[in-house]
């Protein structure tokens, strides 16, 4: 992580900590929804940005997580934050099961298959599969989460919960990006044949990317359920997957700060155009087209890491200057 990025994160963190002092409840709520979408966009970025797998069904994993937490809470009385890891785990297992037969498909086909999976999950929820999802009405009466004995209820409190989780996520995902796993994903995205030739088990790595991305979407789903206290299949429509997909591409696929900026813009822009009322989605579509024509690589594009002489440990032989 370079210094400029670190300063950027610090400024953003300070601004968010102070935000409730300067913003009204509605604006804080917009920030909360930015936070949730940042989490979703980061989770999709692992699959779409890092591994290069066109997934337009992220809402399915989000839904699995949200419904898991909601069912555990309302049926078994499990506290929301305890349900969170279970949500992540189930979403990951679900992702591995559904992605296993299709991960080898060529880009666009995977895109359509994942759209299909998302729709199948939504239709299954509407049809009250297993008799626990509450059908089209969904599940209501989900309890508020407790953190260290403190009940989280107001938008301000949710701001700290959500953005706290964002901070943890950003830290972990940066570490992941620089790890062996992250480098392997980058390699197989750039050239899958060469990666396979270098001994990377592409199917396994792709599945791992799916599992990890789904786990994060699932945990985000459980926070969403805790915040709304009501969930229904409409919250996990195809449109939701499209929006998250947009955030990743618009911000800069594969770039963690880019994806966060993308999420912030996509959530805040329709709020700014609120005066346009019904025409705001029209403007939104137009901006999408113009953005892609003007800056197809995204706002803050991913940059390949570069090594400097100082990165080589001292006891290794230094590269000799050409004679």
């Amino acid at each position: 992580m370079n210094r400029r990025l670190l300063v950027g994160y610090l400024v953003a963190a300070v601004a968010l900590i102070l935000a409730p002092r300067f913003l009204d409840a509605y604006q804080v709520d917009v920030l909360n929804s930015v936070g949730l979408y940042v989490l979703l966009a980061l989770s999709l970025n692992l699959i779409l940005g890092d591994a290069g797998l066109f997934n337009m069904g992220q809402a399915a994993f989000y839904a699995v997580g949200a419904y898991t937490a909601a069912i555990l809470n309302t049926r078994l009385g499990v506290p929301m934050l305890w349900a969170m890891p279970v949500s992540g785990l189930l979403a990951a297992i679900f992702a591995v099961i559904v992605a296993r037969p299709v991960v080898h498909l060529r880009g666009d086909y995977l895109l359509v298959v994942t759209i299909g999976l998302g729709e199948i999950v939504r239709i299954a929820l509407v049809n009250d599969v297993f008799g626990v999802t509450g059908g089209a009405n969904g599940i209501f009466g989900i309890a508020r989460p407790f953190l260290f004995g403190h009940k989280i209820r107001t938008p301000d409190e949710f701001l700290y919960l959500i953005w706290g989780f964002v901070a943890v996520t950003v830290f972990l995902f940066h570490r992941l990006e620089e790890s062996r796993f992250g480098r392997a994903l980058t390699f197989l995205r750039e050239d899958a044949v060469a990666a396979e030739g270098s001994g990377i088990d592409t199917t396994r790595y792709r599945l791992m990317a799916f599992a990890l991305g789904a786990a994060w979407a699932g945990m985000t789903g459980s926070i969403y359920a805790a915040k709304m206290t009501i969930i229904s299949p409409e919250s996990f429509s195809f449109w939701e997957s499209v929006v998250v997909f947009l955030m990743v591409i618009l911000g800069g696929s594969g770039s963690i700060p880019g994806v966060m900026v993308g999420a912030a813009i996509v959530v805040i822009m329709p709020e700014i155009f609120r005066d346009l009322a019904t025409a705001r989605m029209l403007v939104f579509g137009l901006v999408m087209m113009v953005m892609m024509v003007v800056r197809p690589q995204g706002l803050l594009p991913w940059r390949a890491p570069r090594f400097r002489a100082g990165d080589v440990p001292r006891d290794l032989p230094r590269p000799e200057a050409a004679p």
Binding site: L282, G285, M291, P296, Q297
Partner: peptide, 26 residues
């Protein structure tokens, strides 16, 4: 977008779809 990454064209197509749909609604 012919020489851009394929995903950019996908997003542009989605934008076109949103634009056309909302123009019709208006």
């Amino acid at each position: 977008l012919q020489s851009s990454p394929r995903l950019s064209a996908v997003v542009s197509a989605l934008g076109g779809s949103i634009f056309l749909q909302n123009a019709l609604m208006l």
